[in-house]
Amino acid sequence: MTSGEQHASFEQGRISEGPQGQIRTAGGEQRNRVLGLPLHFLLIAPTFLIVFGLLVYPLGHAIVLSLSNKILTGSVPFKWVGLGNYIDLLETKSEMWTSVGVTLRFALVGVFLEFIIGLSLALLLNREFRGRTWLRVGLLVPLMVPPLASGLIWRIIYDDEFGIFPHLIRTVGANPPIFLGDPDWALYAVVATEVWRSSPFMVLVLLAALQAQPVETIEAAEVDGASGWQVFRLITLPFITPVIIVALLFRTVDALRTFDLIFLLTAGGPGTTTEVISMFIYRWGFRHFKLGFTSAASILLMIATLIICIFYLRMLVVRQAEVQLTQE
């Protein structure tokens, strides 16, 4: 099997449903049926039963409530308000827009840095060097620390009086900002913590993808005289692109709704500079108990996330197609 052929079979139907998909069912209809039911149906049924079984009701509940003025504490009579909550939220003077801006900056800067760091470290860890095993295990520790503890630790590390970080900066003669109190810095201080906590996820996922890459494709390319960069760009990158898509997708989805870290580090302050959308939703949902309003905000967040994800997928699909073209 040549590398070209192998790639063709990797690529097929991964995102688009191509005619090559036929190959997959090779082996006959019979192999694909169990107890008279299509095998693929039996295989996906449990997942969808459990996921939608548990989430359809809450999701429906949220959609219905988003059309009402429901307040859990109960002194205001319940009434349907149609799209009123959505209109309030989307109004230009709405506080939500501030949160939207903060959230986008938080997620984009954060995920971008995580991706760059994640890919670099994955490539580094894919090489042989002393202490590699330890670094691989060690990198995961930030993910294991309970969020409460990591939030508190970073909060104290950043603190201008008690913190080691400003202290070290002073020791070298510079003047540190109030990391969590200065409106210009707070968001990036929080992003740094998020990168610390989440980039190991990228590293491990991308590393696993790199390791699944067949060695002989690279060897073949090297024999053909390809430089290290060419090998990476033309062979490695296309190979791991699907995993990159998935990793970016999930990190973006999670970053757009990050809550715990921000709650612990700044609770949205100073002012509203770190009030991400989920902080906004938390305040209105669990401090004000305005469930109707909160549900509407959540659904808007979901729709926005959806759009961003589709955009992501498309962008990467196009890129992937280009890579394939240059290859051929």
Binding site: F48, F259, T294, L301, M302, C309
Partner: peptide, 13 residues
């Protein structure tokens, strides 16, 4: 659609 299940902020659930 599976990912959509993960897009809702947990608070509303």
């Amino acid at each position: 659609s599976l990912i959509v299940a993960r897009m809702m902020p947990p608070i509303v659930f």
